[in-house]
Design a protein around this nucleic acid. Structure first.
Length: 422
RNA sequence: GGAGAGGUGUCCGAGCGGCCUAAGGAGCACGAUUGGAAAUCGUGUAUUUAUCGAAAGGUGGAUCGUGGGUUCAAAUCCCACCCUCUCCGCCA
């Protein structure tokens, strides 16, 4: 949630942000609603004040053994008017709360203003994809040849866009997860978490997936749960409704979880292989920090994720997303992309975002400064990394001309020392 | 799923219709004492929101699991829901 004071004091900032993000939003309606809401609050508070004063008098008189009939009647009338007003007020507040959820975050000033992915800016990494001196098979071709993915049978179990890892494929997947977790917990100092991935509605509002991404998630029919689309949801909600002492910040969590996405609206796109699937594995990094350290910690989070790609020896590049390409709750987002030599495509393996106080406001996560003041924390997160695309990149970039896959050195200890698949 | 007990401030814990801006204790912060510390004593110790103010701050409202209700008045009474614990049943 944005700072609601902006609605009253500086709506132009919001208007500009909405425009830069190419979002469609009737801000004037929300501003009007806010005004209506505030006058309503003032009115009700005055009524209550009067009622409280009378009640107090009544109490005193009764203790003196009197029966202040008239005062009681007056108070009853006041009470009834108040209740009527409150009913109306509740409706307004409801509408307001819902509407406010649709206001996106304000982009950071360093974010390029742009309308689409062409306007994302290259930050660092490879400018050109590396060349290979033989014909590189796509991951689905070589995976089938080596029998490490069962692409034909996965649909029998769950339908299209699901992955069935098999044999050394399954082992490689597990190796990746362990490698990522070890890297971030042992070397980068994150605390490992293994959270539940069925999360209730309010958690998804907290992190900003709802209301906008309703159609992109799986919802349980009989219970109020969504299958978490990312560990960002449980990890950020760990400290919901808390006031964290300043000395405990920053808090850094790393978690492996499966992630579930409906991929609605992508029918017919990326249907081959395992690039776009409904269930995938990811190690997610989440940090809670003090505002003044926010952007410094954010850069560090990016480099923590980047290091995973580096250690795997995969060709990568990093971009900063322009205003229209960022997710709705983000102030600034970097994407790490790795090159897949078989598909001849750059694949997004990590999206690193800072939300400033946007999520913290929604989820009510605050910290107490050493001096005693309370303020919202900054939250940020990034994949470190998402496995299917890393898996693709290993199959396509570590391929030999004899149709084998060389296992990246950092993974070998997780693969019983094995050097090759095939 | 059934039966029972309970959810109060940072924590423990009292309160069971008006004086609750929540007793008492612990913790924490500051001060006194001390050569220094412990102990002791003193002082302070929530959040949120509306409004006025440049700000410091002032004036109100709200908050005792959540949401309704009764009442002039609710932490306290009633209803529903959520969570925790104990026992029973069922089940990986």
């Amino acid at each position: 949630m944005i700072n609601l004071k902006l609605l009253k004091e500086n709506p132009e900032i919001i208007r500009q942000a909405v425009k830069n993000r190419s979002e469609n939003l009737d801000l004037d309606e929300i501003i009007e609603l806010d005004k209506l809401r505030r006058t309503g609050i003032t009115k009700i508070q005055n009524l209550k004040k009067e009622r409280n004063e009378i009640s107090e008098k009544v109490g005193k008189l009764k203790q003196q053994g009197k029966n202040p009939q008239e005062l009681m009647e007056k108070a009853r009338d006041l009470s009834n008017t108040t209740k009527d007003s409150e009913k109306k007020q509740r409706e307004i507040e409801d509408r307001f709360t819902k509407a406010v959820q649709w206001i996106p975050n304000i982009p950071h000033e360093s974010v390029p203003i742009g309308k689409g992915s062409e306007e994302n800016q290259f930050i660092r990494g490879l400018k050109e994809p590396p060349k290979s001196d033989f014909h590189v098979l796509t991951h689905w071709e070589i995976a089938e040849a080596l029998d490490i993915l069962d692409i034909k049978r996965a649909p029998k179990i769950s339908g299209s866009r699901f992955i069935l890892y098999k044999g050394l494929g399954a082992k490689l997947e597990r190796a990746l997860i362990n490698f990522f977790l070890d890297l971030h917990t042992k070397k980068h100092g994150y605390i490992e978490i293994f959270p539940p991935v069925l999360n209730p509605t309010h958690c998804l509002y907290g992190t900003g997936q709802l209301p906008k991404l309703e159609d992109d998630m799986y919802k349980c029919r009989d219970d109020d749960f969504y299958l978490s689309p990312t560990a960002e949801v449980p990890l950020t909600n760990i400290h919901r409704d808390e006031i964290i002492p300043e000395k405990k910040l920053p808090i850094c969590y790393a978690a492996y979880t499966p992630c579930f996405r409906r991929e609605a609206g992508s029918y017919g796109k990326d249907v081959r292989g395992i690039k776009r699937v409904h269930q995938f594995n990811k190690v997610e990094l989440v940090k809670y920090t003090k505002p003044e350290n926010g952007y410094e910690d954010f850069e560090k989070l990016l480099s923590d994720a980047e290091e995973a790609t580096k250690l795997l020896g995969l060709p990568y590049r990093i971009k900063v997303l322009c205003t229209s390409d960022m997710t709705f709750a983000s102030s600034k987002t970097y994407d790490i992309e790795i090159y897949a030599a078989g598909m001849k495509e750059w694949l997004e393996v990590s999206s690193v975002s800072i939300y400033e106080q946007y999520q913290a406001r929604r989820a009510n996560i605050r910290y107490r400064k050493n001096e005693g003041d309370v303020d919202f924390v900054y939250t940020m997160n990034g994949s470190g990394l998402a496995t299917p695309r890393v898996f693709i990149a290993i199959l396509e970039n570590y391929q030999t001309k004899h149709g084998q896959i060389k296992i990246p050195e950092v993974l070998r200890s997780y693969m019983d020392g094995q050097e090759f698949i095939g």
